[in-house]
Amino acid sequence: MRFRYVAGCLLALCAAQVSADAEKAIRASLDKLNLSGEIKAVSPAPVDGLYQVQLESGRLLYASENGDHIIQGAIFDVSGAQPRNLTAEAEAKGIGEAIDAIPRSEMVIFPAAERKAHITVFTDTDCGYCRKLHTEIDELNELGVEVRYAAFPRGGMETETARTMQSIWCAKDQQAAMTRAKQGDSVKEATCDDPVAKQFALGRQVGVQGTPAIFLGNGVLIPGYKPAAALAKEALANQ
Rank of each mutant, 00 (worst) to 15 (best):
V6S: 14
V6M: 10
A7N: 10
C9A: 07
C9G: 15
C9V: 15
L10M: 13
A12S: 11
C14E: 08
A16P: 05
S19P: 05
A20Y: 11
E23V: 05
K24Y: 07
I26T: 03
I26H: 02
R27Q: 09
A28F: 13
S29T: 15
L30D: 12
K32G: 04
L33D: 01
L33H: 08
L35V: 06
G37Q: 06
K40P: 02
K40Y: 11
P44K: 11
P44S: 07
V47P: 04
D48P: 07
D48N: 13
G49W: 06
Q52F: 03
L55A: 12
L55P: 10
E56R: 12
S57I: 05
S57Y: 13
G58C: 01
R59D: 15
L60K: 00
A63C: 06
E65M: 07
N66F: 04
H69Q: 09
A74L: 13
D77R: 14
V78R: 09
L86H: 05
A90Y: 03
E91Y: 11
I95H: 02
G96R: 03
A98V: 08
A98C: 13
D100S: 10
D100I: 00
A101F: 00
S105W: 10
S105A: 14
S105L: 12
I109K: 10
F110M: 11
P111C: 13
A112C: 13
R115H: 09
A117E: 11
H118G: 15
T120S: 08
T120H: 10
D124T: 04
C127S: 07
Y129R: 00
R131A: 03
R131P: 09
R131S: 08
K132R: 15
K132W: 04
L133G: 04
L133K: 00
H134I: 03
E136Q: 09
E139T: 10
N141L: 01
E142K: 14
E142W: 01
E142G: 14
E146C: 08
V147Q: 05
V147I: 12
R148M: 11
Y149E: 00
A151F: 03
F152Y: 15
F152S: 04
G156Q: 01
M157F: 04
E158R: 07
E160I: 02
A162M: 05
R163H: 10
R163F: 11
R163P: 00
T164K: 14
C170Y: 06
A171K: 07
K172L: 05
D173F: 05
Q174N: 02
Q175H: 06
A177W: 03
M178H: 01
T179N: 12
T179S: 12
R180P: 08
A181T: 11
A181P: 09
G184A: 08
G184S: 01
S186Y: 06
S186H: 12
V187D: 02
A190P: 03
A190N: 14
T191A: 09
T191D: 10
C192L: 07
A197T: 09
K198W: 00
F200D: 06
A201E: 15
L202R: 04
Q205E: 14
Q205P: 08
V206Q: 05
V208I: 06
G210F: 05
T211K: 00
P212E: 12
A213W: 13
F215Q: 01
G217F: 08
G217V: 07
N218L: 02
G219L: 04
G219S: 00
V220Y: 01
Y225A: 03
A228P: 01
A229T: 14
K233I: 02
N238A: 05
N238T: 09
